[in-house]
Design a protein around this nucleic acid. Sequence first.
DNA 1: CGAGTGATGTCATTGACTGACATCACCGAT
DNA 2: ATCGGTGATGTCAGTCAATGACATCACTCG
Lengths: 187, 187
Amino acid sequence: MGRWEPDAAGRLREAAMALYAERGYDGTTVAEIADRAGVTARTFFRHFADKREVLFAGSELLQEHMVAALAGAPADATPMEAMTTAVLASADFFDDIRREYSRRRSAVIMSTPELRERELIKMATLTTALTQGLLDRGVAPDIAALAAETGVAVFKVSFERWINAADDVPISDVLQATLKNLAGLTA
Amino acid sequence: MGRWEPDAAGRLREAAMALYAERGYDGTTVAEIADRAGVTARTFFRHFADKREVLFAGSELLQEHMVAALAGAPADATPMEAMTTAVLASADFFDDIRREYSRRRSAVIMSTPELRERELIKMATLTTALTQGLLDRGVAPDIAALAAETGVAVFKVSFERWINAADDVPISDVLQATLKNLAGLTA
DNA sequence: CGAGTGATGTCATTGACTGACATCACCGAT
DNA sequence: ATCGGTGATGTCAGTCAATGACATCACTCG
């Protein structure tokens, strides 16, 4: 595989998280990340498109999982019911073990506008994918777009609440509470 | 004022729009924008924080307008009613005259991931401001965040529909139709 | 008319990112 | 075991965005 040690991408991810948390995103150079991972800066860019992306590798997995859940919802489910299925499926990715990592990562992202931008475009991509999923179910375009936006809004709000919640609150509970709030909002 | 001609910022904005539309964002250098505007690249960065921001100057105005509308809603309005007021107020910024400019600008932004990111963070900032506006009205935090996200979702979906709609459809009509769709979504 | 102010130009530098090309570890075929 | 191919990495040179320091010019006010 690699020239020396395997899993250069993994080492780069860890090095980046550590340095971003320690010195901040702006205070960290790609060369430093690469150094800590035992490679050159050129190799960093072979694994990640840019300095931000190193924190977001793997975000396709969550998206694929939610889209699959959406596709798996009963054919006679309403658009919002199907979206609910997808939103609740996100809980599979955020168990209590990953909570601490999620907190650290989220803290870094929230404190850096550039990283926040990247996070937002990931969410927008998720929205697009879910919209397409609804279209595949035969939902009208306008409704699909709106339902997807709303679903992602629920996820965002829930995730942030979960991050800030006590350690024993599962994210699924937060998601359900937020969905309930949503129902009450328009009633 | 300026060393030579006044309104350097305005000339830079126009030059940027023209070049981005013509050669694409990536194919345009800041030096080229500055050249066309008759200034140096250094001056570009005195007027705009970075190469993206030149397309987003003035976005605070929309936000302030919507927040003001939110604050002006009747004290006994529900959170969603208040948000509706704010969302409908956005129509004041997008009359038929600005439609063509909005289309051109939107086309450039949508075709460039970096610009899309910037657009998204502007929307997120708007969401935050509206959330705060609801908090100021005494709305509970969870509800406020969700209502703001939902309201911005309505605006996003509507704006995109308006951009793609026939020339004689006012954005206020689209906004109202989307709000109606939202009401039907959870019913 | 001269000092002050604000916007601009000039220069040097850092750091993200890319293309071209050389190099090395490993694997499979002979 | 050796050779050639393949893929990941290193090296080098270059572009461009972004910033700090300092000089300069136009305009205004006293």
